[in-house]
Nucleic acid binder design. Structure first.
Lengths: 241, 241
DNA sequence: CTATAGTAACTGGTATTACCAGTTGACAGG
DNA sequence: CCTGTCAACTGGTAATACCAGTTACTATAG
């Protein structure tokens, strides 16, 4: 282990790959607003010619942009920019996360921390546009309960919480919670239901959601916060069994 | 906009790309523990032959693994698995984040939320191994203060908080905070110092760290928590100006 | 024998070319 | 006007080649 003389005069030379340069230019164009969501990206062949590089290099850059969730690639169609979306990234990483012990419980605790903060930041009164998706999620959950469709119920549950956070004004909180919620969603779709299968538990969930919705609609943010807190605590207890 | 008839009987056919299959197999091998950090990954040519696909396809999968921070690729050497590391991902995404208004402030607020929770979860008493890196970060910060080295000071600050979170026992909190701290680090290295340049402010930071460290060493977690809270509030106020 | 330099066999990085499959739009024929 | 066909795109994949860097072995000079 004597190789690292670490002569302070000489720093290792960082070699950058060319896909990183392409990536850099793209990100710069997006962050400066030159490229906006919905814009169509030139074809791979055009890009290769513009950058004076080969098509594989362009493809590697696009691959990364795809995983980051910054572009949407349609085979035969083209590539389009979109609002950054953490879904694709999550779907790759999720299995690595859930292989850990007690990850489900930790995730719930973390979600509690974030979600309560999100509700504190909700504007008061809540706009009708913010309330609408929450109401829709509740309706969906009610239907799922009647049909005894466990997975649909769980997804509706997630949708409710997602619409809650979308109403908050913190960009970071939205992104982080989006990440957490995506993890839950991934777990549910993968069949590892972190959720409740018993009918009465699902009914309780629905009931909680309805009450939270009502309090928010009435402008009682404090009440809603307390309800959400106990709601998540209940879920946590159920999951622990 | 009438194209989406959304006939419930027919679901769109999802076509998966072959790099996703390769990715899936890799992630599965890692999450089941067959592949462990430090293991060497076969060469691209071997993999291509094993998977019966072309080398570009293998490369695209490896590219993604590299961005996720799951492997380390040495040109001319080979690829090695490592503990997942969010750094590469952050360095791509960071510019997109910091292009938003008031992101710095939001980041501080979010960090406050997370970090206080992390200190609540600290084991009590704190082990010497957990305290040691914190002490080292304080020493580094003291040196930077004397040398009037702003960037080194900021990085030492980050190092202190990073070592704090590493002592907590929550895997998620560690990962999320690691992500946040990486964002700060990226900002500092990029010259967009979210930090303080005035000598007396830096001295105050150092003083706060020393007190927090002392309280933690003495086992007074509650005191440390209060100190951290006011410490971060102070930083936030300074950043607001 | 040892240490050096040289060399051959790797590795990943990039480029080139080609073909396939899916999409799109124009255009001709009903 | 609708419809089916076809040509010109698009991205997905493959095969091949060459470059540059790493590594380890080897032969040579001391």
């Amino acid at each position: 282990m004597e190789e690292h003389k670490s002569n302070p005069s000489f720093k290792p030379i960082a070699t950058r790959k060319i896909y990183q340069y392409i990536l850099e230019q793209f990100v710069h164009l997006v962050s400066t607003g030159v490229l906006k969501p919905g814009d169509k990206i030139p074809s791979e062949r055009e890009l290769a010619e513009s950058f004076k590089v080969s098509r594989p290099s362009v493809r590697e850059a696009l691959r990364v942009l795809e995983i980051i969730g910054l572009i949407d690639i349609q085979p035969g169609g083209g590539a389009y920019l979109k609002e950054m979306e953490l879904g694709p990234f999550i779907s790759v990483v999720a299995p690595l996360m859930f292989s850990r012990d007690r990850f489900d419980l930790e995730l719930l605790e973390f979600r509690e921390l974030i979600e309560i903060r999100a509700i504190e930041l909700l504007p008061n009164p809540l706009s009708a546009e913010a309330l609408e998706p929450m109401g829709r999620a509740i309706g969906e959950m009610r239907r799922a309960l009647l049909d005894n469709d466990v997975e649909a119920g769980a997804l509706a549950d997630i949708q409710f919480h997602r619409s809650l956070l979308l109403a908050s004004n913190s960009f970071i909180l939205q992104k982080v919670l989006e990440l957490v919620v995506s993890l839950f969603e991934h777990a549910v779709r993968g069949g590892r239901s972190v959720v409740l299968e018993k009918q009465e538990d699902a009914a309780q969930l629905l009931h909680d959601h309805e009450r939270i919705y009502q309090e928010l609609a009435d402008g009682n943010t404090d009440h809603a916060k307390k309800l959400l807190s106990s709601h998540l605590a209940m879920v946590k207890n159920l999951a622990r069994t």
